[in-house]
């Protein structure tokens, strides 16, 4: 369902979830590759959590476990030259975009071989060659950047799109409104993906937002919107396809509210349940683990069997183990790196 058909305030059901999922346009390899990507993100995040607890990763570390279908489904609908920005919970997006597990893990370890040369860390995975432009640490701060990238696309008369990932807590931030207003005002090829995982750190959506349906925020800007089931990678993919088409062909921005759930704490320093949600709630959501959902579908469609899944899993585990060993053994940045990359001239001022 698109917002143009839903201008009136109402209750936009997560229609995609209920609709049939025609997969005829997707070959079996693609469908298996999505499962592999989600497994890779899952195993990567589990390993990152382990490394964090061993003190090999410092600072903040926000895991993506539970939300894998959002990154995999949306990025599958994008083109290699599109621009992407994300919040600090971006490991999954970086991997789904094609960043190697080695480059990502080495960055978490702060090593010179990391994608940002050890200077960014968990919150600032960046690879300009992938159009993956961060990894940003200020809630909502990167949303206007995406508008700016979409502006640049229009300015240069290109057909790329600019995509931004943020959590539902960011929509209460002024930057979100300012950015979406300009994107709609100027008809920019931007897609704003709100990964609604229900909690901004420990504050539930309904305790922070006056409206429950985040997508309704788009009404203020006369912007297209959709509410999407984020635990089904195919539904995510199809919604994103529509948004991309609007942006690429008609320069119409979209706000996608993708409903998902974070199985872990806000960051590694937070408990999984805490005071703000119950164990039962988390367990209930785990029943719709996106990997489980997609595995069942592929098995039902005869695309893969249990042995095939085990084999895929073993494959990604070995990739993640390799990344871990690589990151662990990799060199720290040279001490002189402290002073580089501050200015274009290299030095400090």
């Amino acid at each position: 369902m698109t917002a143009k058909a839903d201008r009136k305030r109402g209750s936009p059901a997560a229609a995609g979830a209920a609709a049939p999922n025609p997969t005829s346009d997707l070959n079996a390899d693609t469908q298996r590759s999505w499962l592999r990507q989600m497994l890779l993100i899952r195993r990567f995040e589990e390993k990152a959590g382990e490394a964090y607890s061993l003190g090999k990763i410092g600072g903040f570390c926000h895991l993506y476990i539970g939300q894998e279908a959002v990154a995999v489904g949306t990025l599958a609908a994008m083109r290699g030259d599109d621009y992407i920005t994300a919040s600090y919970r971006e490991h999954g997006h970086a991997l789904a975009r094609g960043m190697s597990a080695r480059a990502a893990m080495a960055e978490l370890f702060g090593k010179a071989a990391g994608c940002s040369h050890g200077k960014g860390g968990s919150m600032h995975l960046i690879d300009a060659s992938l159009g993956f432009l961060g990894g940003h640490g200020i809630v909502g701060g990167h949303i206007p950047l995406t508008t700016g990238m979409a502006f640049a696309i229009k300015y240069r008369e290109e057909d790329r799109v600019a995509v931004c990932y943020f959590g539902e807590a960011a929509v209460n931030n002024g930057a979100f409104h300012e950015a979406l207003n300009m994107a709609a005002l100027w008809k920019l090829p931007a897609i704003y993906i709100c990964e609604n995982n229900r909690y901004g750190m420990g504050t539930a959506l309904e305790r922070a937002s006056a409206i429950y349906d985040i997508s309704e925020r788009a009404l203020s800007y006369d912007m297209d919107r959709e509410v999407v089931d984020g635990q089904d990678v195919l539904v995510v993919y199809q919604a994103m396809q529509r948004a991309v088409k609007r942006a690429r062909e008609n320069k119409h921005p979209t706000l996608l509210e993708i409903r998902t759930y974070r199985f872990m704490g806000h960051s590694m320093s937070d408990p999984i349940h805490g005071h703000y949600r119950t164990r039962e709630e988390v367990e209930e959501h785990r029943k719709r683990d996106p990997i489980l959902v997609w595995s069942e579908k592929l098995k039902a469609d005869g695309i893969i069997d249990e042995r095939g899944i085990k084999s895929l899993d073993a494959d990604v585990i070995s990739e993640v183990e390799d990344a871990y060993r690589f990151a662990d053994a990799a060199a720290d940045p040279e001490p002189g790196e402290l002073w580089t990359d501050v200015y274009a001239s290299g030095g400090t001022a």
Partner: peptide, 19 residues
């Protein structure tokens, strides 16, 4: 619009991709 945070961010985002 009168939206300093927003348009400053738009400028920065555009600069990040080459404008």
């Amino acid at each position: 619009p009168i939206t300093e945070l927003g348009f400053a961010g738009v400028g920065v985002g555009a600069a990040m991709v080459g404008l």
